[in-house]
């Protein structure tokens, strides 16, 4: 365990209990004035905190792996079309009215993500090439986006329409333990796949040809990446909707503290992603607005200017964090 991982882990261990106390109702741990404090903590805030950790860890880890795989600091887990496909599955659940049961919405989203993973594997899996893979992902993303718009425009009721639009913004309100049981195990499995992809991603530092000369099997690496990104991002979207920018920002924040090998970036990015989403969700709860700020909106509000600053910094010094090639 590196010092960076230990630091991030310590920060998480501090942040999680604090996050449980914060919200519309503040809970004083020593003199609980709220009569149902125990219920709020165990049934509302603890599962929500665990969900933020799982979603943030998944997005951070997936972002680090994607940037390593595409050899590009501007890559984001959304590029593979997994998130839009998962969202499409969820939209379908709303559209048909099947979302009323607690398990169907995440299940449909997971089916959407699984469909995108299978399609990616079918289209690009045979060659193992990066360009075809990325194009296939973008095609899936745009197709899923178009189908989602179609579903929204043909929405059967105004209620379903507002449900869909609100859900797509990404939020963690009213989530409970069963979402944790869906998201956390899948995210952990996905992170394990991404970590297994680490040595292959390191070999790719030298380019595709040199990586193959080092014994890399491009198809195996691609399969690990589809599994890893699909499981982390798909399960995150299934329980929280689309949460943007975490996968893009977090690897950048972490990279300067590592030796810049993609394999060394995945775990700290997962930890930092968990911390970022936890803190962002707490701020959403605490901000005195009429209705709670949506997590997806909040992160994108912070993320967009960050992305712009990053672009400007990359332009000023081409070797800072970006490629040398």
């Amino acid at each position: 365990m590196t010092r960076l991982n230990l630091t991030l882990l310590a920060a998480l261990i501090l942040a999680v209990p604090l996050s449980l106390l914060a919200g519309k109702v503040w809970i004083d741990p020593f003199h609980p004035a709220v009569p149902n404090a125990g219920v709020i903590l165990l049934e509302l805030r603890l599962p929500r905190a665990l969900l933020t950790l799982a979603i943030g860890a998944g997005l951070g880890g997936a972002g680090a792996a994607m940037q390593g795989y595409l050899r590009n600091p501007l890559a984001d887990p959304g590029l593979f079309g997994i998130a839009p496909a998962a969202a499409l599955g969820a939209v379908f659940a709303f559209w048909t009215g099947l979302s009323a049961a607690a398990w169907t919405l995440p299940l449909f989203a997971l089916i959407g993500a699984g469909g995108a993973m299978a399609l990616l594997g079918l289209i690009a899996g045979r060659s193992g090439g990066v360009a075809l893979f990325t194009l296939a992902g973008m095609m899936i993303a745009s197709l899923a986006g178009a189908l989602m718009s179609l579903a929204i425009s043909l929405s059967p009721t105004a209620f379903a329409l507002s449900e869909i639009v609100t859900w797509l913004m990404g939020a963690l309100t009213d989530r409970g333990w069963h979402e944790v049981w869906i998201c956390a195990p899948l995210t952990l499995a996905g992170l394990a796949a991404l970590r297994a992809a680490g040595p292959g991603l390191d070999a790719l530092i030298l380019g595709a040809t040199a990586a193959r000369s080092l014994g890399l099997d491009p198809r195996r690496l691609q399969a690990l990446l589809i599994a890893g990104v699909g499981l982390t991002v798909g399960s995150g979207v299934a329980v929280a909707g689309i949460v943007g920018f975490v996968g893009l920002i977090v690897p950048h924040l972490v990279r300067p503290f590592t030796d810049r090998r993609p394999s060394r970036l995945i775990v700290p990015s997962a930890l930092a992603g968990a911390l970022l989403v936890l803190v962002a969700d707490c701020l959403c709860r605490v901000l005195p607005l009429v209705s709670e700020l949506r997590l997806g909106i909040a992160l994108s509000l912070v993320g967009a200017p960050f992305f712009l600053a990053l672009l400007l910094r990359l332009r000023r010094s081409p070797t800072l964090d970006g490629g040398l090639a």
């Binding site: 030796d259 810049r260 090998r261 964090d321």
Partner: peptide, 22 residues
């Protein structure tokens, strides 16, 4: 390979150590 492409600004030792991957 002919092209001297390196994706991330790693240190020399980190780069050389990639040769140990196999």
């Amino acid at each position: 390979p002919q092209s001297p492409e390196v994706a991330w600004d790693v240190h020399v030792e980190t780069l050389v150590r990639l040769g140990r991957l196999p």
